[in-house]
């Protein structure tokens, strides 16, 4: 079993705009652990640094500072090319993450060949079919011969999951795996990931902006806001008893008609049940303001 320890992970992007140079801190001292069999959810709005963390874990970006330590059960560290055998990633957009030129078989067979999981064409093919069957793609023989444009979004995302698990990965980074899918098939893909996690005892980092699925599928939730972890804790307590204003806002944005108004008000916001539309929540200061930018007194 493989676990990941992320310590003080920081990523800065240098932006050059004409003569001006500025630094954007996309991820600011984020720490968390990924343990076998457990799911950590990263929640936050667009631009909060969720995907940058995923890309750093997948070694697509280099961290500016901080460390990502992947260790086996006996505490031996995982380095170099072996890293990719242990840590794999599922991308957000299944319509972009499969090469339109290659067959499904190619996508699943390549990681098997790169990491020498199989020998010979026959064994590789057998393994590819097995992987496709594991992600509920049947008839697997038929689907292996197809090309990405002949599959639906849900099927493509299953192929992407099969590809990620093909090298025998123990750590799975799922970067908003269902946000591009039809609502009707999201649950199927999420349940599939939960089943695979149980079977393989995977450590999963689940990145999302959907609090409902984060609560349902994860053990721990980290709320990310402008690159910083503003709140963390067991899934249920973060959702049901949010402490930080931003988490309260996120929880309140979830479309739950019964709870919505109450939560916002409980968070210390003005009563908006009337027709007073002159106040708005400022995402960046975490305050309610009226139209003339004065903070609204908490009732």
């Amino acid at each position: 079993m493989t676990s990941v320890e992320v310590k003080n992970l920081t990523k800065e992007f240098h932006i050059r705009n004409g003569m001006k140079r500025s630094t954007l801190t996309a991820v600011d001292r984020v720490s968390f652990d990924l343990l076998p069999g457990r799911t950590v959810a990263l929640v936050g709005e667009s631009g909060s640094g969720k995907s940058t963390i995923a890309r750093m874990l997948a070694r697509l970006e280099k961290p500016t500072s901080g460390s990502i330590d992947v260790t086996l059960d006996d505490r031996t560290p995982v380095h170099g090319s072996v890293y990719r055998r242990h840590v794999q990633m599922v991308f957000q957009d299944p319509f972009a993450s499969l090469n339109p030129f290659h067959s499904i078989e190619h996508h699943v067979a390549r990681p098997l060949k790169i990491h020498r999981r199989t020998r010979g064409a026959a064994e590789t093919h057998e393994r590819v079919v097995h992987m496709l069957e594991r992600v509920n793609l049947s008839p697997a023989e038929d689907i292996a011969a197809r090309r990405p444009h002949e599959l639906s979004g849900g099927q493509r995302q299953r192929v992407a999951i099969a590809r990620a698990l093909a090298p025998g990965a123990q750590v799975l980074i799922a970067d908003e795996p269902v946000s591009m899918l039809d609502v009707s098939i999201r649950l199927g893909v999420l349940n599939l990931m939960a089943r695979l996690q149980r079977e393989d005892n995977l450590a999963v980092l689940y990145i999302t902006h959907d609090l409902a699925t984060a609560r349902h599928f994860s053990d721990e939730i980290l709320v990310l806001y402008r690159g910083r972890v503003v709140e963390r804790g067991p899934a249920d307590s973060v959702i049901l008893n949010p402490q930080h204003d931003y988490t309260k806002l996120l929880a309140a944005s979830a479309p739950d008609p019964e709870r919505m108004g109450k939560l916002v008000r409980a968070a210390g916001a003005p009563d908006r049940s009337g027709i007073d539309n002159s106040v708005s929540f400022n995402h960046y200061t975490g305050e309610w303001t009226s139209l003339d930018k004065r903070p609204v007194p908490v009732s």
Binding site: N99, I114, R163, P167
Partner: peptide, 13 residues
Amino acid sequence: NRDYVAASRVAGE
């Protein structure tokens, strides 16, 4: 910059 190129790099190509 397409995802499938990133995906093949993640796969170890």
